Simulated scan of single mutants.
Amino acid sequence: MGARVNTVRLEADRDTGVAVVTLDRPERLNAVDLVMVRELAETWGRLRCDDSVRAVVLTGAGERAFCTGIDRDAAVPQPSSPYMQDDPLLGAGPKANGLWKPVVAAVRGMACGGAFYLLGESEFVVADTTAVFFDPHTTYGMVSAYESVLMAGRMPYGEVARMMLMGTAERISAERAHAVGLVSEVVGPGEALDAAVRCAAVIAGYPPKGVQGTVRALWAAGEAARAQGCAQAPHLIALGNLSPGRQAELFAARRREFRVR
């Protein structure tokens, strides 16, 4: 089975039971626009109903980035009320779409900002040595809310706080991300996808109901904390974000220098 859509590529191997979902906007560093959100939701829905797929690998096209979050050119209509803030990325991940098949993320290059919605809804992350992780929100006068909530379930508090608060001034290397638990394995340049597929093929070889029940149990372990944190997010974003115009000014004036640790 193979299917090509505008921004998401789906390829599945019926012999191994592994599907590879590729974010396919390399010219935009795989940034997520509203089309990709819709196509990701459609892809996860399709995989829910395909019993021949028993494990999934999520990756990004190209060498420069896994995903750089929401596309800054995407027009996202927002109601004026702080009680009705809309975040399109909340509907982009596998768990948000009820997919309880295991998802392994394969990261090459940059993973930042809204990429954490997808990494936060994956079971584990394999990265190659070119991978770097950072969150630019604070640099541009924005609250890192949902990203922080999701990463707080993956990393020690101090590491999450440092990544979110340092903004674009600092990036976490694959090695550091492995040391703090965000990444489960580091491989050579360009080898993350193959390594993730190998893991997924092993998992796909096990009885699926036991695997899916385990995925659901693991997600349930942190579900209450995530729900409470996410419930605060719209208000914190409404209170803390600068105006879009001011954000754009800060983005245009951003410094290109950064430290990798």
Results as ranks from 00 to 15, higher is better:
residue 171 R to N: 04
residue 125 V to C: 05
residue 28 R to T: 09
residue 194 D to A: 15
residue 82 P to Y: 03
residue 258 F to R: 07
residue 9 R to P: 02
residue 182 L to T: 04
residue 13 D to Q: 08
residue 233 A to N: 10
residue 256 R to V: 13
residue 136 P to A: 01
residue 246 R to Y: 15
residue 178 H to M: 10
residue 111 A to L: 08
residue 131 A to R: 01
residue 136 P to V: 02
residue 146 Y to F: 13
residue 240 G to S: 07
residue 153 G to T: 12
residue 189 P to S: 11
residue 114 G to D: 06
residue 212 Q to H: 12
residue 256 R to F: 12
residue 20 V to Q: 01
residue 110 M to I: 12
residue 193 L to Q: 05
residue 173 S to F: 13
residue 103 V to I: 05
residue 92 A to T: 00
residue 255 R to C: 14
residue 4 R to D: 14
residue 210 G to M: 13
residue 77 P to V: 08
residue 237 I to M: 15
residue 22 T to Q: 04
residue 81 S to G: 04
residue 96 A to M: 02
residue 127 A to S: 04
residue 36 M to W: 01
residue 227 A to D: 12
residue 248 A to N: 07
residue 6 N to Q: 12
residue 159 E to S: 15
residue 190 G to R: 09
residue 242 L to W: 01
residue 122 S to E: 04
residue 245 G to N: 08
residue 177 A to C: 11
residue 244 P to Q: 11
residue 192 A to L: 03
residue 26 P to Q: 03
residue 224 A to I: 07
residue 186 V to S: 05
residue 211 V to M: 03
residue 151 M to Y: 08
residue 2 G to E: 15
residue 97 N to D: 04
residue 193 L to M: 02
residue 60 G to L: 02
residue 118 L to Y: 04
residue 210 G to V: 10
residue 180 V to D: 08
residue 29 L to D: 15
residue 146 Y to N: 12
